[in-house]
């Protein structure tokens, strides 16, 4: 067990709370779809899994790549589509 990695996790949560409380309610839907896209970071893990030999692991990795890509691409695109609509007077 690695204490560094837990340190990183805990500090990241604090940073998360700090920056997200500053997002105004008017942008909460884009925040949600945008952070959703960020949770598509699982794609990094998915890519790594495809190197696992043993066929099952590789196939699971492939499905994971598809899922995570949907998450990233769809998430960022829809967020952009929404944010484009927010206009000033």
């Amino acid at each position: 067990m690695d204490i560094n990695i837990i340190t990183v996790f805990i500090l990241a949560i604090f940073v998360g709370f700090e920056i997200i409380t500053k997002v105004p309610p008017t942008l909460h839907t884009p925040l949600m779809s945008g952070s959703n896209a960020i949770s598509g970071i699982a794609i990094v893990g998915a890519i790594i899994s495809t190197k696992i030999d043993g066929d099952i692991g590789t196939w699971l990795g492939l499905i994971a790549v598809v899922f995570a890509t949907v998450n990233c691409v769809g998430g960022f695109m829809v967020t952009d589509r929404m944010l484009k609509m927010f206009k000033r007077k």
């Binding site: 598509g40 794609i43 893990g45 994971a64 998450n71 998430g75």
Partner: peptide, 26 residues
Amino acid sequence: MPQMVAIFNGFGGGASALVATAEFFS
């Protein structure tokens, strides 16, 4: 939009679970 965010959440969670499963097998 709520449905779509819901389904994207599902894909994200599913991807994480699949990666962990693959790692267990390996």
